[in-house]
Amino acid sequence: MEYTLMTRIKIYLLTALIVICVPISSALAANEVNIYSYRQAFLIRPFLDQFTEETGIAVNVVYAKKGILQRLQQEGENTRADLVLTAGFSRLKALKEAGLLQPVSSGPLKENVPKRYRDPENEWFGLTLRSRIIAYSKARVPAGALRRYEDLADPKWKGKICVRTGSHYYNRALVASMVSAHGEAKTEAWVRGLVANFARKPQGNDRAQAKAVFEGVCDIAIMNTYYFGKMKFNKKQPGQREWAASLGIVFPNQGDRGAHVNVSGAGIVKHAKNRENAVHLLEFLSDEFAQKMYAARNYEYPVKDGVGWSDEVKSWGEFKADDLALVELFKLGPTAQRVIDRADWR
């Protein structure tokens, strides 16, 4: 079948029209809020649906792991995004520094999110907490042998420790907290000691380290608390429950500064078109219901004081958190990365 020239021109015009009009029509739809998310959609969908049900505000999501900041930057004041959700906290700092967020003065937010977990200018807010803990093999390491992060550099653990790559931001933040406590030189010595104790080249995520301990590749691992929960209560792969059962865990430095914690968080986009809805959603996320659900879903801790912990996270005990403010961790991040590279924590 051959199209005539006119028919073809019509088809082109129609296509062009669709391409142009679809985004415009979606921009006109009023009652919605648009999220650029560094967090996987399957983690956040359930309570976003709850939000829509309560308020009638539709929630649209794009999830991407890299480049959201650059996309916001380039889209400038025409961006359709209203809210950014992050999985860790390093992006929060980068977003703020790039001038892509706006301050929010909201009573509920100030009340719900403790000061050390939010930006001093109220441009970003922590939403869930996790601690970086030490896990060890119950069979091969005596209980109480490890009490502090500092102990990990002890030569007696030579060839016993598994951990993910040094430049991952969870490790970078941990190193930053060490720099804050001990200074750069002492921290570098500590990282060198830690690296000398590695059982293998760093690889995999935190869960892979726990598995390696279970398998006997190493005796000690460093991991975020939620990975422990994901294994301990794994319904789909019961094998992972065995890994968790073989592990003892330590919240380090309980006798001094407390265990290192980091957060996931969110901020409102500077050029948000649905600002009111976005603030509404952010308040919803910081409040009791979502706090409970957001934290429980990924085995994290709520940031809001007084929100009950899920039974799951309670099962491995309470702890004292290092009260170093997140902004301090941000400031020390680049120093920490250099320490990591120099000490060759690959």
Binding site: A41, N60, V62, Y63, A64, K65, K66, I68, N205
Partner: peptide, 22 residues
């Protein structure tokens, strides 16, 4: 991942959000 419209998934992005969580 980065350039797609809102609420839009392909087989690859769908598989990835789980695979990235191991």
């Amino acid at each position: 991942l980065l350039l797609r419209p809102f609420n839009f998934d392909t087989l690859a992005t769908f598989a990835y959000q789980y695979a990235s969580d191991e």
